[in-house]
Design a protein around this nucleic acid. Structure first.
Lengths: 331, 331
DNA sequence: CTGAAAGCGCTTACAG
DNA sequence: CTGAAAGCGCTTACAG
């Protein structure tokens, strides 16, 4: 930049102003400005990122923290986010928390340190009742005063924006479909996470039962307390339910996530002793070209991503207001 | 840092040296060093990222450019990379090129501008014969002199390191299994990409035929020239093959990628008129809990990721040598 | 309208 | 062994 200024016989300030699009504001003659712009383009000159950031404290980067980069939902969500970031000339810095709140916190701190203008996070949740030594993310973020939007679930103590899908209504609707199909005893299987999405899906399940004039029976709810249901608790729970007298046994299954639904079916099939698989419903679509035959709530991942990114840029551009939680409908 | 130095009655240089782990080299009394370290830890002080990078030109960030973030292979590869980055205290900056070389180039430039110490890229490829206006990635990278490792395929003109799987041997082996099962006319379906992986898989296919004493017949090779085979060329090609006289018709299918294999099957099934689906083989495993019944080459994505990241750090640590291409076996 | 100057928060020869 | 000083490449009041 120095050489650019010297070459054109101008001061570095003038060059800097023009390059930052403040030519008008500074009333620099359009002709001078154009000369600078032309020459900069010729040289393919871009102000040094670090020098610029050291002064302005802005980077044009948005941090993302996702529990995993392989779940199918990721891709659509990232795509939605990417579209919006593109419109704002921002770059995303994507990290994976691997469903671990400690890793999540580390990633957020690393992103903060490296400079991001805003953060989008699909927060991890602890199992209910598991006293974690990791301080809540909300705390760290509040101190940093970084604009941030939570996606998919609202963590405890969250004081910022969030974008979620309508978990309660979706659960209610899909469980109602099971009931409309003739089921009377719908079992529900869920990770027992301290997350708004889990609570809401469970609430929707209960509502559907009530709608149908059934009273929810506690014994048909399976709460899993471990990430890996292969460890046996899923098998134990399903076995227990299938050991009930025929008229008390589940005749349909509602599972809160796709992966868990497949595992449930895997465990269930051998226990059926040849009887037909009862209807199953769950959140999360099948992968392409693989029809599991289950009812599925198709989650609006791309719309969630878009909405979250747009909300974030609203905040960055100071269109302030109290923190909101946007609810995106499912299909 | 200034206040830290003043508080301890030391110069900023001394503090800087100690914080950068050069206490020994500078022969600073261990006791002084410890005082600095302790107080820095107490204050949770970390040197400003931008100021540091402005001087050192290093960021501790590694850029990743992947064609997509949703393909299943991504997750394992990212995990492998992440493990190695963790060991080196590096953070990854992940971007998606969406199979578009123009986007790929933009992403690389954005990463370069934002400062990365090295780059890992799963390169996009053009369709063969499609003269792209986008200059080869290799060119841009050569100019930047950034350490870089290509994963999964070696682009044309690549002068740096690469880590690939053994595409030729894997293809040969799996096609041989089709032949060992009794197939005599194995059709091959592939995107006609200008990529080493595509060439190698095709070579392996031909070798397997030769091994079995069969002469490759050109008419059984389907080359697709568009990303989206739903546009009809796949249907046309498969229809053509199935319209051959019975003894010339394919009795097994080898497809170079999983997604394309599912699409091929989708197109094939209606044409079979109730006849049993012939054996199919392909690269890429089924998603969890979904058995397609096809033979599959399980790709060593995690190992590829690990190996690529390790190679990159070797370069960063100056353990130089000529560019190499590592070949990781499949299973 | 323009430029000289201070400053962003560090690192790193260099002199002692 | 330690510190004063220059410099990394910009931005941005401020004075004119």
């Amino acid at each position: 930049m120095k050489s650019l200024a010297e070459e054109l016989g101008l001061s570095r300030s003038t060059v800097s102003f023009v390059l930052n699009g403040e030519a008008e504001k500074r009333r620099i003659p359009p002709e001078t400005a154009q000369r600078i712009l032309d020459r900069a383009a010729e040289l393919d000159f871009r102000p040094d990122f670090f020098a610029r950031a050291l002064n302005t404290r802005r980077t044009g980067s948005i941090g993302l923290v996702f529990p995993d980069v392989h779940e199918a939902y990721m891709s659509e969500m990232v795509r939605g986010i990417d579209e919006v970031l593109g419109q704002h000339n921002a770059l995303m810095m994507l990290t994976s928390s691997r469903f671990d709140r400690a890793v999540e916190l580390r990633n957020v701190q690393a992103l903060l340190h490296r400079g991001i203008d805003g953060l989008l996070v699909v927060p991890c949740a602890d199992f209910r009742g598991a006293a974690s030594p990791v301080p809540p993310l909300a705390e760290t973020l509040r101190r940093s005063s970084l604009p941030v939007v939570a996606i998919d679930r609202v963590p405890a103590g969250w004081a910022a924006d969030a974008v979620v899908q309508d978990d309660r209504v979706s659960a209610r609707r899909i469980v109602s479909r099971l009931l409309a199909g003739g089921a009377r005893r719908v079992a529900s299987v869920s990770f027992d996470l301290d997350a708004s999405s889990v609570r809401d899906r469970h609430a929707g399940y209960l509502e559907a039962l009530t709608d149908a004039g059934l009273s929810p029976e506690a014994c048909l709810q399976v709460w899993l307390n471990q990430v890996n249901p292969q460890s046996g608790d899923l098998l134990a729970a399903v076995t227990r339910l299938m050991a009930l007298p025929p008229q008390e046994r589940p005749d349909a299954w509602f599972v809160t996530t796709a992966g868990l639904a497949y595992r449930t079916r895997e465990v269930l099939v051998p226990l059926l002793a040849g009887a037909p698989l009862p209807p199953m419903a769950r959140f999360g679509a099948d992968p392409a070209f693989h029809d599991s035959g289950m009812l599925a709530v198709v989650q609006p991942h791309k719309a969630l991503g878009r909405a979250a990114a747009e909300l974030l840029f609203d905040r960055l551009e100071q269109r302030a207001g109290a923190p909101t939680t946007l609810v995106v409908p499912t299909s």
